[in-house]
């Protein structure tokens, strides 16, 4: 049986589009935008009212989850939704296989 792959096993890069809904407080909105803008893995797009667009980059699944969770905790962020996932870097020669030879028969 396979051991569990580590959570930070490198995978090919994924870039996600994220739509953030900010709170109603103008000061919180500004603060949230500044906080998100300072993050090295985020590209901040346009803001209109409570809506703010982001591009998020992640090199592994755990990092993507952490980033998603972190955005949700930023003061001034009310809600976020993933809009798209891009993954051109996924290389079939490094993509995972699945060990069918290890099918168990007790």
């Amino acid at each position: 049986m396979d051991a569990f792959p580590p959570a930070d096993e490198p995978v090919d890069p994924v870039i996600g589009g994220i739509l953030v809904q900010l709170t109603d407080d103008p000061a919180e909105r500004t603060e949230a935008e500044a906080t998100l803008r300072a993050h090295p893995a985020l590209t901040v797009g346009t803001r209109s009212g409570p809506w703010l667009t982001l591009a998020a980059e992640a090199v592994n699944a755990a990092a993507a989850r952490d980033l998603h969770s972190w955005i949700a905790t930023v003061r001034g962020v009310r809600w976020l939704e993933v809009s798209a996932v891009f993954f051109e870097g996924l290389d079939p020669h490094t993509a995972p296989t699945f060990p069918t030879s290890q099918v168990q028969s007790v």
Partner: peptide
């Protein structure tokens, strides 16, 4: 939080996908 993407994605493509991601949002 994560490192920038690996070299598997060319910088121009990365920028391209960032823009496409923003457009989708």
């Amino acid at each position: 939080t994560p490192r920038p993407c690996s070299s598997a994605l060319h910088p121009d493509r990365r920028q391209f996908f960032r823009q496409a991601a923003l457009a989708s949002a």
